[in-house]
Design a binder for these strands. Sequence first.
RNA 1: GGUCCCGUCGUCUAGAGGCCUAGGACGCCGCCCUCUCAAGGCGGUAACGCCGGUUCGAAUCCGGUCGGGACUACCA
Length: 558
Amino acid sequence: MTNGPASPLSRDLIDSLFPADLPETEHWEQRYPPRDLPAGAEVTRFAPSPTGWLHIGGIFTASINLALARQSGGVNVLRVEDTDQSRFSEGALAQFQAGFDYFGIHPDESELEGVIRGSYDPYVQSSRAQIYASYVRQLMREGKAYPCFATKDELAEISAKQKATGALPGYYGDWAVWRDAPEDQVRTRLSNGDPYVIRFRSPGVGGQRVTYTDAVRGELTADDNRNDIVILKSSENALRLPTYHLAHAVDDHLMRVTLVLRGEEWLSSVQLHHQLFDALGFERVRYAHIAQLMKQEGGSRRKLSKRKDPEASVAYYVEQGFPPEAVQYYLRGLANGRLAEMPLADALAAPIKLEDFGSAGPLVDLVKLEDISADFVSGLSGEEIIERVSAWAQTHDQSLVKTLDAERIVALEALKVERGPEVENPRKDLRKWSDFRPVYGFFFSSVFELVTDASDERFGGLSPEIVRELASRFADGYVAPSEDTVWFDQVRSLSQEMGFAKNQKIYKKDPDSYPGSIADASGVIRVLLTGSRRSPDMPEICGALGTEEVLRRVRAVL
RNA sequence: GGUCCCGUCGUCUAGAGGCCUAGGACGCCGCCCUCUCAAGGCGGUAACGCCGGUUCGAAUCCGGUCGGGACUACCA
């Protein structure tokens, strides 16, 4: 078995496979010179495929990449990996943009919506076909790559035989039928116009072990790669594009990337990538393989999947209106556990450490995220909340925008209730912007629906007569809240006059003697005012609503 | 099947041979506060996957085993 670069095909044959004016690799090396950066500066990159909304794991990886570059005084690149035309989804780039904007991720170099930032462009792989071709030609001239005419069926046959005989799957050794094919055979197929791919001639030997260091996992050992993987896709396509492996090597070298941070699903490709870097004469990059975000399913866990799990897509967080800070904080805590123990602002400012990454894939815990989020929102002022809710509603709840615009004063009053700098223990009833309507909607006359039926079940089974009497007497004697009165006293005395139990304990001891407890009585007023048995502090609500509106709501049931 | 990665409360984790009767956070449960919620206060529940070995001593080191995950494409 031959492994080293065997006698290459003749130069004229190889060159005839490429455009005559294709630049030499030296051209690209000069076009994309090493970066002038201080020592220790990391050049990182985030390289998603345009297949729709970003995976939340993408935001995870993207922000860590960005942080690593920023905290080291380096550069962060966004590169679009669209070498698989069949998976391309229209609008994906706009969705990337929307996701990045939402989370405030702004790479230093990118190419989105036609705007190029950075001088190592283009940043979209389908625009780099010529570059890859130069390097493939070089590899072929050196006998490190060769054309393969095996058809899909032939490949399937090979793999079936391997399976039947228990041989390792792959295109290697005797299975690599085109690896050392005689030149005249290649010429014949070429003149027939048969489609072909270019394969890498792997220098790997079966059973050979290799060791390398991963920046998060430390020293790793594995069998060396010996598969002659495809590096340039079929000539059937008008535009010959590379596979991920070749594109990764060429792009990360030419973009002068120093640290490749990617998901652990790439771990088993490292040996191959090292071979490729070596064959191309590139300096090897440092790798950091981080764990995948997981999802609990039954007794086991699996990769969080965009197809199955709504929370896997960035769209979910954007649509629900989770504050980006909270999501970022949560994600950072997942990356480096110690950051989760810090206050949000500190954690977002603290550096990320590769060695602090956990190796196991964490489960995404939406409940925890919501807790973080509620805590974050409770620290915001009413103005800030309105601003953010409005911005969110702009694309997700148009009618709420109108309400907020028209009744801004009301909105402000609503958000003053048990909130603000002087409040020691602010309300934590808002986790995401979409919570605003269900939680605070009743403050707005245009959103609130009057409760007109005295036998409404929200009154908790009190007789309609009692409900009406309560409403009527409350309204008639209503006094707006003020500083020197205890507002609730009017409810208290009214409910006592009507025979309600003074408190829950008394009522529970002897339920038959009372129509209900004071909680039931105040519940009636609460339902009339808010439409719900649960609400913030009533006097504050009344203050915000104003006497006229309070009376209108209470009397609606009469 | 093969290769690799991973394994501490339900979840995220702290833990680098004695500071571990294993700490924190979220959740859950209870109590308190209370006109209902959201909170808040206090308390509680709950984990080193398993088996061997090394050692005076192991969650920490070693071996095995079990379990989970990833890869095994002209997808990334």
